[in-house]
Every structure is written in C-alpha cells, then in structure tokens.
C-alpha cells in the first residue's frame, strides 16, 4: 500500500522543527510501524539525506524506548500497544500519518522524534525503590503475600517507563508513572517502611521536573501500552494525603 507520512524533523534541542512530508509507495501490511520507518530511512540514506532519528531497542514492547506520537496518539491508535508492536495492517492504502515526538517541557527534543526522558529516572531516584542493600534479605518465603495483592502489585509494576502517559496528558502530567511505582511498592510488605517517605519525595521530584498536575482526564490510561489503571493515581493521592498529615520529620 501507499502511504504519506508527515514527520517532525528537528536537528537539535535548540533548533526549530517542522513537519516534513514523505511518500512511501510499497508498505507491506505485515511490517511493523518501525520497520516501515526503517525502509524509509534506508531510502533517505541512499539519497544522502539524514535518516529520521527515533528511539527504539527491544522491538517487542517491553523496553519502553519507542516514543512517538502517531496521529495525535502516543504509540499510535492500537490499545495497549507500543509503537514497535504496531503493525501496518492497521492502515489502509492512501492513508496519511502524522508522526511527532512525545511532547512535554520535561521531555526536551534531542533530535527528530527522540526526546530526553531522564526526568522519569530522577523521579525513581527520589524514592521509587525499596532501600535494601545487597545481602541483607530474609528468606523469600519468610513473608507471605496474599495473591491478590501480589497480582495488583504486578499490574502496576508492569509500567515500562515509556512516558506515553505524559505525552498523552493534556497537562503533561507524570501521575500515572509515579502512581504505578507508588502502588507497586506500596502494596507489598517490603515497601511499607518507606511508603510515606517515598510518596512525598517522588511527588516533590515530579513537580520539580516540570510535569503538570492531574485533572482526571484519563488520557494517560488510554495511551498506556500496559494499560496501567487510574486507581494507581488514586492511591498516589491517598498516600500523599496520608503522608502529608502524618509525617513527623520536616
């Protein structure tokens, strides 16, 4: 099939960018979206043009590298699917597809569709962990964990840190990302000792990085390739409120 692409091209963080149009005459429906871009890039390179820069790595929907907004939707139109797992059989001959980077002030553009998402790492640094040094763990079965709790923790822990939630949110909020981690660790006994310190520190960092607040639009959940629940945000709110009311340290 024949497709028209409008792709955001931007040489560097301080350069101006613009949408540029490309025609691809020979797209196979079995290609993945990124393979379609590979084909275009090889063609550009043969012509001596700069290929389109985009982040990608595992191409099986788990590393969270791929980050592009396709026709206004982070990771494209398919529910619960990363860009790398999106296949061209979703499209019809003659379609025009607009591809832009994940947009947020906290995610500055590096080049073309590549953005800097280290702000998410810094949120984890603030407290998204259990402070257990190597070697001082008790036996793994010493603390039983109810299966429903373990399952819910796993639901939240599936977050791949891609930032689609931020990209989709009209406020560029990182609440789903932070909520997923706070929920994952907060549901497990191992996460209890630091539960309230964690939520305060992570929220403080999140605000500092320049993400917006949550207004319960729900776009984040809609865009999330792992379909993380909005309940994680409620839990973040509840833990934050409890922590604020009960913390004793400054």
């Amino acid at each position: 099939m024949r497709l028209t692409l409008r792709v955001w091209r931007q040489a560097g963080p301080r350069d101006a960018g613009a949408l540029k149009q490309y025609e691809i005459p020979d797209v196979s429906p079995d290609m993945s979206f990124l393979e379609m871009l590979d084909v275009l890039n090889e063609r550009l390179e043969r012509q001596g043009d700069r290929p389109i820069a985009f982040d990608h790595d595992c191409r099986e929907g788990i590393c969270g590298s791929c980050s592009m907004t396709i026709d206004g939707r982070p990771h494209g139109p398919q529910q619960g699917t990363t860009t790398c797992q999106l296949h061209m059989r979703r499209y019809r001959d003659g379609d025009t597809i607009t591809i832009e980077p994940f947009r947020a002030t906290a995610f500055p553009v590096v080049r073309d569709l590549v953005v800097d998402r280290t702000a998410l790492d810094r949120i984890i640094q603030a407290g998204g962990f259990v402070g257990v040094a190597t070697g001082n763990a008790p036996d793994a079965n010493a603390i039983p964990i109810a299966k429903p709790d373990a399952d819910r923790a796993m639901d939240a822990a599936q977050c791949i840190g891609c930032g689609a939630c931020v990209a989709a949110c009209p406020n560029a909020s990182a609440m789903l990302f932070a909520g997923a981690k706070v929920t994952h660790l907060g549901l497990l006994p191992q996460g209890q000792p630091e539960r309230y310190r964690r939520v305060l520190a992570m929220v403080e960092r999140m605000d500092m990085e320049g993400f917006g607040g949550c207004t319960n639009f729900g776009e984040c959940h809609e865009a999330c390739p792992k379909e993380i629940s909005l309940a994680t945000i409620a839990r973040l709110n509840a833990d934050f409120l409890k922590a604020s009311l009960t913390r004793r340290d400054s």
Binding site: S173, G213, F217
Partner: peptide, 19 residues
Amino acid sequence: RQAQAARIDGYAESDPRAA
C-alpha cells in the same frame, strides 16, 4: 498555569480519547 507550562510546544495533531 503549571499545566500550560508543562507543554509549551503543542502537537500538530491531537486525538484525545478519554477526556
């Protein structure tokens, strides 16, 4: 105001589904 500052460069295309 904070939300507006969190996305200064907007999208050319947007397709909200949930809001």
